[in-house]
Amino acid sequence: MCQSCLSWYARCIAPYLVHAGCSAGAFARMRRRMIPRAEGIVVEVGFGSGLNLPYYDAARVERLVGVDPDGTMLGLAESKSRSLSFEVECLRANGESLPLSDDLADTVVVTYAFCTIPDPQAALNEIRRILKPTGRLIFLEHGQAEGPRCRRWQARLNGLWGRLAGGCHLNRDPLRLIRAAGFRVLEEERGRFQLPFWQLGSHYAGVAAPPRS
């Protein structure tokens, strides 16, 4: 595919395909379990089209800042946020360079975004910076499969999948990335994606805390 076609696809097609795929039941069930735990000033990195918005507990959220580099996705999210009872601010920015002050957030939420962020380690360093010392990172991710057969298929499909799915990597290990950034993983669980999402490997969920000072 030519470069101009790829650029058009990335702007006009991929955001809607990603939105549709991430609306599936396998993702919604995990959002329903984890997102209501966010509280205080919340920063969501990889805000996308706002698929987490229905699951926030309005009684616990003071303010939500959604950060995403994709203007098309943010446009979808903004239309959903107008009916909410808490303040929602959408910022167009990269996860590796958050335009937010130090120690701002009580909770940072990242769902199915470490797979797509070009430099997830830099993004995690930024998340550490903006989290309060008592803050928490809530994460939902897909990534490296546990079985060797699925891992081999993930490696084969990774390049093509990334071009079709907005830069998504199939075989990153989110728990390793989070720990390598100095976070303490307080809770973790994982499962296996079933058809039709087998290529996404393992499903990761958990809560992490910044390193102790």
Rank of each mutant, 00 (worst) to 15 (best):
F114N: 00
R156V: 15
A145I: 10
R128C: 11
P120D: 06
L175W: 08
F139G: 00
Q144W: 03
T134S: 10
A113H: 03
F114W: 02
L140D: 03
L137Q: 04
T134C: 09
H203W: 05
R156M: 11
T134R: 08
L195T: 11
H203C: 07
R149Y: 15
Y112M: 00
A180C: 02
C115I: 08
E126S: 14
R192Y: 13
G166Y: 12
V185Q: 01
R172E: 01
A113I: 03
G167N: 12
L160H: 12
A181L: 02
P120C: 05
C168W: 08
A155Y: 10
A165I: 13
L160P: 14
E187H: 14
Q121S: 14
F139D: 01
W161G: 15
L177A: 10
L137P: 01
F139Y: 05
L200I: 06
V185S: 00
A145P: 04
L124Q: 04
L157G: 14
F193P: 08
L186Q: 07
F197P: 03
E126F: 13
E187C: 12
R149L: 15
G206P: 03
G167L: 11
F183T: 04
D119W: 11
E187S: 13
A180L: 00
R128Y: 12
R176H: 09
S202H: 00
E146H: 06
L177G: 09
V185P: 02
R192E: 15
A181M: 03
R128E: 11
T134Y: 10
E126N: 13
L140Q: 06
A205M: 10
L195H: 08
Q194H: 07
N125M: 13
H169E: 05
I130Y: 04
W161S: 14
I130A: 06
G135A: 09
Y112D: 01
V185D: 02
L160W: 15
E189P: 12
D119G: 07
P148N: 14
E146L: 06
F114H: 01
D173M: 03
C168M: 06
P174C: 09
I138Y: 00
A165F: 15
V185T: 01
R156I: 15
P174D: 06
R163I: 15
E189Q: 15
P148I: 12
N125I: 11
E126L: 15
P120K: 03
H142I: 11
R128M: 10
I178T: 00
L170V: 09
R163P: 12
N125T: 13
P174K: 05
I127P: 05
D173N: 05
P174M: 07
N158E: 13
P196Y: 12
L186M: 09
R184I: 05
A145W: 02
Q199E: 08
